[in-house]
């Protein structure tokens, strides 16, 4: 059985990885928790534009817009690509499915930039 390929989280991105129960029309495996009544994954469901924050899927639909806006505000393309590559990675067969796992790659120290008070 394929693990659920849905990207979870908002600021802290992760993968669901629970056993899937169906396959969305986009080809993504989806678990019982993330499938909507029409059998769609949250991203396909969010594409139907949930403008109402009372809807349980609102945050997943808003996430991409948030990353676009904040990336523009911070002039940080890496910030958006972090989400985009993560989201696209769902379609990679054989990808690892970590549930919000964290694997840092080091602190590069103070390089003299003066925009941080430390």
């Amino acid at each position: 059985m394929n693990p659920c390929a849905v990207t979870t989280g908002f600021f802290v991105l992760g993968r669901c990885g629970r056993p899937s129960v169906t396959v969305c029309r986009c080809g993504r495996s989806v678990c019982a928790r993330h499938v909507d009544p029409q059998g769609q994954c949250p991203e396909c469901a969010a594409a139907q534009a949930y403008a109402d924050p009372f809807h349980p899927g609102w945050a997943r639909g808003y996430r991409r817009r948030y990353y676009e806006q904040s990336s523009g505000m911070y002039n940080d393309a890496v910030w958006y690509s972090r989400f985009d590559s993560y989201d696209r990675g769902q379609f990679d067969a054989g990808d690892g499915f970590d549930v919000g796992g964290y694997d840092g790659d080091g602190f590069d120290g103070d390089d003299g930039n003066d925009w941080v008070d430390s």
Binding site: F11, L13, G89, G96, D103
Partner: peptide, 25 residues
């Protein structure tokens, strides 16, 4: 809301994203 989330973004830019471990066949 947009401003609150925009300010909340900064602390998250300081940590690398969660690694997506790729399986090698």
């Amino acid at each position: 809301l947009q401003w609150i989330l925009a300010v909340a973004t900064e602390p998250f830019r300081w940590t690398p994203p969660a690694a997506t471990v790729r399986r090698t066949a």
